[in-house]
Amino acid sequence: SRWTEEEMETAKKGLLEHGRNWSAIARMVGSKTVSQCKNFYFNYKKRQNLDEILQQHK
């Protein structure tokens, strides 16, 4: 299923807060499964600069 802007923003916040904790990110997004969140990261990594966001994760 397609990702809305809102879901993407929430997933990015999740990456920032939780790093690669996909289940925590899935809980934040609410409408996507753990594997969908993981796939989002790998599919949108380049397009959305997700690696940069991940590097900011403490």
Rank of each mutant, 00 (worst) to 15 (best):
H57I: 15
R27S: 11
R20E: 14
W3E: 09
S31V: 05
D51H: 09
E5L: 08
F40R: 03
N39A: 12
E52W: 06
I53T: 05
Q36F: 15
T33W: 02
K45F: 09
T10E: 11
A11S: 05
Y44P: 05
Y44D: 03
I25Q: 02
S31A: 08
A26S: 11
E5V: 10
E17M: 07
N39G: 07
R20L: 14
H18K: 13
F42R: 15
D51N: 03
E52F: 01
T10D: 06
L54D: 14
L16R: 11
S35A: 13
K13G: 05
M8F: 03
K45S: 06
T10W: 07
H18I: 07
L54H: 05
W22F: 12
N49H: 08
H57F: 09
Y41E: 01
E52P: 07
F40P: 00
I53P: 11
A26H: 01
L50N: 08
N43P: 02
K58M: 15
A11T: 04
S23Q: 13
K45M: 06
E52R: 06
K13S: 06
Y44K: 02
G30P: 08
E17K: 11
M8T: 08
G19V: 15
E9M: 04
Q55T: 08
K46E: 14
N39K: 12
K13L: 03
W3L: 09
G14I: 01
T33V: 15
E52G: 05
T4M: 04
G30T: 06
L15F: 01
G14D: 00
S35K: 13
W22P: 03
R47I: 12
F40N: 01
K32F: 02
S1A: 03
A11F: 13
R27K: 14
R47P: 13
L50T: 11
L16A: 08
I53D: 09
M8V: 09
N39W: 14
K32T: 01
R47K: 14
V34D: 04
L15N: 06
A26C: 04
L54Q: 09
W3R: 13
N43C: 06
K13F: 03
T33N: 03
W3A: 04
A26Q: 03
A26P: 01
H18M: 03
Q48L: 15
L16K: 13
E52C: 08
A11P: 08
V34F: 06
H18E: 03
E7Q: 03
N43K: 09
Y41N: 00
Q55N: 10
I53E: 09
R20W: 12
M8L: 04
S31Q: 07
C37F: 08
L50V: 06
W22H: 01
R2E: 15
C37E: 01
F42H: 14
G14A: 13
Q48R: 07
S35Q: 13
V29N: 00
G19S: 09
E17S: 05
K46V: 01
Q36W: 13
S31P: 00
N49T: 09
L15D: 04
Q48S: 11
K32M: 00
Y41D: 00
Y44W: 12
E9S: 05
S35C: 05
N39L: 07
A24K: 14
N39E: 15
R2I: 14
R2G: 13
M28L: 12
E52D: 05
G14E: 00
V29L: 08
N43S: 07
N43F: 09
T33H: 00
K58T: 06
S1F: 10
Q55G: 10
W22R: 00
Q48C: 07
E5H: 09
F40Y: 01
S31I: 00
A11E: 05
R20C: 15
N49G: 15
L15Y: 07
C37H: 00
Y41Q: 01
G19M: 15
N43R: 12
M8D: 05
I53S: 10
H57Q: 12
E6D: 10
Q55A: 08
F42Y: 15
Y44H: 09
H57E: 04
Y41S: 02
T33P: 00
S23E: 15
C37G: 00
Q36L: 13
E6P: 09
W22T: 04
R27Q: 14
W22V: 03
E52Q: 12
A26V: 10
L16T: 05
W22I: 06
G30R: 07
G30W: 11
F42C: 08
W22M: 03
E17A: 08
M28C: 03
H18D: 01
H57T: 13
N43Q: 15
E5W: 06
R20T: 15
S35W: 06
I53K: 10
T33Q: 00
G30D: 00
E6W: 00
L16P: 02
E6C: 01
K38M: 05
H57A: 11
K38S: 02
E7T: 04
V29D: 00
E5G: 06
E7F: 04
G14F: 03
E5C: 06
K38E: 04
R47A: 14
T4Y: 01
E6H: 10
K32D: 00
G30A: 07
K32V: 00
M8G: 05
N39Y: 06
E52L: 12
G30C: 10
C37Q: 00
C37T: 05
T4E: 09
T10Y: 10
S35I: 11
G30V: 15
F40W: 14
R47V: 15
Q55P: 07
I25W: 15
N49M: 04
W22L: 05
E6S: 10
S23C: 11
W3P: 11
R47S: 15
E17I: 13
L16F: 07
N21S: 06
S23F: 12
V34K: 13
Y41F: 14
G19C: 13
S23H: 13
L50F: 10
K13Y: 01
D51C: 14
S35N: 13
K13D: 05
K45R: 10
I25C: 01
G14V: 02
Y44G: 03
A24H: 03
G19P: 03
K38I: 08
Y41K: 02
Y44A: 07
L15R: 11
V34E: 14
L15K: 14
K13M: 01
F40L: 03
E5D: 09
M8Q: 07
R2A: 11
R2P: 05
T4R: 03
R20K: 14
N43Y: 06
G19H: 01
E17W: 05
E7W: 07
R47G: 04
T4F: 04
S31F: 01
L15T: 01
F40G: 01
K38H: 03
A24G: 01
K58D: 15
H57P: 13
H57W: 10
Y41C: 10
G30E: 14
Q48G: 12
A11M: 15
N21T: 03
N49C: 04
Q36K: 12
T10A: 07
H18W: 11
A26T: 02
K45P: 06
T4Q: 00
L54I: 12
V29T: 02
K38W: 00
Y41T: 01
K58I: 02
L54P: 08
H57Y: 09
W3C: 13
R47Q: 08
C37L: 14
G30N: 03
K32G: 00
R2T: 14
Q55F: 08
Q48Y: 15
T10V: 10
E9C: 07
L54V: 13
L50Y: 01
L16V: 10
E5I: 09
R27I: 03
K45T: 04
T4A: 00
N49D: 07
E6Y: 06
L54M: 08
W3Q: 14
A24C: 05
Q48P: 13
E9K: 15
R2M: 12
H57G: 13
F42P: 01
T33M: 12
A24P: 02
A11C: 02
S1P: 05
H57S: 07
L15W: 03
